[in-house]
Amino acid sequence: MAPASKAIIFTDFDGTITLKDSNDYLTDNLGYGEQKRREGNIDILENRVKFRVAFKEMLDSVPTPFDECVKILCDNIRLDPGFKEFYAWCRDEKIPVIVLSSGMEPIIRALLTKLVGPTADEIKIVSNQPKIFPDGTWTIDYHDDSDFGHDKSLAIRPTANLPKEDRPILFYCGDGVSDLSAARETDLLFAKVGHDLITYCEREGSPFTVFSSFTDIHRDIKDIMEDRTTIDEVAGRYAKEKAAKAAAGAEKAA
């Protein structure tokens, strides 16, 4: 995990680097549909079902051959508008970008190559794999035996536990229920506006800040690395803004 680096960016892929979640796209358009998928996500968030169970059910509802799924996704999934510039800056600064995903590596690699270009080959991917059967059907082959199928915290923890003098600053960017296990492992969590990860962090009291696109992440990380702000200041911004809005709302109501 490149401990000599001054920082490491760990990031979710689907719905974070991309505008749409590729697994959601497959489920909504080729599988059992958006309503049932959202019901499953709520069940996960409320601890009524394990992520690995609900996620496998989602993907198993997709009857389309895997190679065709990859082609469909390459035609329909778009990149976050700020990611390409952010990634170029990270390469210039020698800051590794590591994708931790509950999706499947062939899909992620195909999308990164198409959307970012050849330099995306330098992005390390830790994810699940597809298991394709002789009859052409497929299912997800999970990375580990955890309740998540891929416990993202396991990839972060060895670096997080390095001695202080060797430890880089660790950032994590995510949006959904598959990011729950990673939420407390890094120095600063970026949670995407309007998504389930914010609900979890607020409920658990985990510190975080929000982002709408990687343009926001790029600004904040650059400012931190160049000592124009601190992690605590960035992490406290969302809570302060929310408290100010609540106070303004209460004053208006009174």
Rank of each mutant, 00 (worst) to 15 (best):
F83T: 07
A244T: 14
L189E: 11
F55K: 01
M225D: 00
V210L: 04
L154N: 06
F214H: 13
A155K: 12
Y200I: 06
D227P: 04
M58Y: 13
R37Q: 05
D24T: 05
F171H: 11
R38F: 12
D179L: 04
P134L: 09
D21M: 09
R167S: 11
Y200S: 11
T137E: 03
E226S: 10
L188Q: 08
S212H: 12
D21P: 05
A110W: 11
K36N: 12
G103A: 10
L45S: 03
I140N: 08
S22P: 01
A182C: 03
S213F: 04
T137F: 01
E202H: 11
L73E: 11
R78A: 13
M104K: 07
F211H: 14
R91D: 06
P158F: 00
F83P: 04
D179I: 09
D144W: 05
C69E: 06
G136W: 13
N41Y: 13
I221H: 09
R203D: 11
F133M: 14
T229C: 10
M104P: 04
S102P: 05
G40P: 02
A254L: 05
R228H: 13
F55S: 03
S127H: 11
D21W: 07
F148N: 07
A88P: 00
Y200W: 13
H218W: 03
E233K: 13
L26K: 05
S101C: 08
K71S: 12
K71T: 11
L26C: 11
R52Q: 11
K222A: 00
F10K: 05
P3Q: 05
V53D: 14
V193K: 15
G194S: 09
K131Y: 13
Y238R: 06
V99A: 02
G117T: 05
P81A: 08
K192G: 08
T159L: 07
A246K: 06
R184K: 14
D216C: 02
V234N: 06
S181K: 01
L73D: 05
I123A: 02
V126A: 03
D80A: 04
L189R: 07
T18C: 01
Y142A: 12
F208E: 01
P207R: 02
E85F: 02
G103L: 11
L112D: 05
E85M: 07
D166H: 15
L111E: 15
I9W: 02
I132C: 13
R203F: 01
S22Q: 00
Y142W: 14
E165D: 15
W89D: 08
Y25W: 15
D145F: 05
A54Q: 12
A250M: 09
R38I: 12
D135C: 08
T230D: 04
V62Q: 05
I95P: 06
A253C: 02
D92W: 00
L180R: 07
E251Q: 11
E57G: 02
V99K: 04
E204K: 04
T215S: 11
D223F: 03
K71I: 12
V99H: 01
L154F: 06
W89P: 01
G249W: 04
P158K: 03
C173W: 03
D223E: 14
A183E: 02
M1R: 10
L111N: 03
T64K: 12
D166T: 09
N76R: 09
K164E: 15
A244E: 15
L26D: 00
K56V: 03
R38H: 13
G194Y: 08
T215N: 10
T230F: 00
D166V: 05
